[in-house]
């Protein structure tokens, strides 16, 4: 595939994705394309369906209707929910990364920081302890986790450190697509700012493609190129981040933006 074609083929394509929980709507009829190197932010108030959509996109929840296609390294479009389970799990631990809001959901709390970062390498067949450790140290440094803590368990880390460790653990194998659910949620404001800087640096440096769910418009503005605004399970507005935030067209988006600017 040439560079030209590569940029025209979406990395991820969502087509009319709907997910309900019994009588409750999760998300409804959502379609969009994510192109290589692009970061899309999904914003909206609590309960608007952001996490539901993200989990469907990442193969963690099966939509009721609709489909999600992922273009793999060979250029084949894989239906995320109909490929075999081994293939889907393989994608999840190689091409994809998932950063959970609560670090404990994304870390092994009884395994050292180094072991946490090394797991994906070992899952991929790395069998040289020295190299694994070197890469773990490198990633702790990149994510600003004190490297002298490499043998400590994450349950002795602060919330911000745990979240940075989770990011290191996810990015160590150079994934092509990163899903993040409220990556800065639950952290103190100053800790959030540092994490955001870090994420922004990594996204730019690695040219990551990412889908970031957040209820925090400031986070969305800093990290994403494009925005999708959700309300009651539906996308009410999409566009370039600055356009949506500076000149919102939808009434709900206007409310959302104004409530942030004038709390």
């Amino acid at each position: 595939m040439t560079e030209q074609e590569n940029l025209q083929t979406p990395l991820l394509s969502a087509q009319s994705v709907t997910k309900t929980y019994g009588p409750h709507l999760g998300c409804s009829d959502i379609s969009f394309d994510l192109y290589p190197g692009e970061v899309i932010g999904i914003v909206g108030e609590s309960g608007s369906g952001k996490t539901t959509l993200l989990n469907c996109l990442a193969g963690r929840l099966t939509p009721d209707t609709g489909a999600i296609f992922y273009t793999d390294r060979l250029g084949s479009a894989l239906n995320v929910h109909t490929v075999s389970e081994p293939q889907r799990r393989m994608l999840m631990r190689t091409d994809w990364a998932f950063v959970h809001q609560h670090a404990r959901d994304g870390l092994r709390m009884t395994v050292s920081a180094g072991g946490n970062v090394g797991e994906r390498l070992m899952a991929g067949g790395a069998r040289h302890y020295g190299n694994i450790r070197e890469q773990a140290l490198d990633w702790l440094e990149k994510t600003e986790v004190d490297t002298s803590r490499i043998d400590d368990r994450p349950d002795t880390f602060s919330g911000g450190m745990q979240q940075r460790l989770q990011i290191a653990r996810n990015l160590v194998t150079g994934p092509r697509l990163v899903f993040m659910d409220e990556p800065t949620g639950g952290l103190d404001v100053s800790v959030q700012a540092r994490l955001l800087d870090l994420l922004r640096g990594l996204v730019a440096e690695m040219g990551l493609s990412a889908i970031i769910v957040t209820h925090d418009l400031a986070v969305a503005r800093l990290l994403s190129h494009r925005l999708m605004v959700m309300r009651r399970g539906q996308v009410v507005e999409t566009g370039l981040t600055d356009q949506v935030l500076d000149d919102p067209q939808d009434a709900y988006t206007q409310l959302l933006v104004s409530s942030v600017l004038h709390p």
Binding site: R108, G115, M122, Y129
Partner: peptide, 10 residues
């Protein structure tokens, strides 16, 4: 291998 890694680290 994570288990063995932990062994060596410790």
């Amino acid at each position: 291998h994570v288990k063995l890694y932990e062994d060596i680290a410790r």
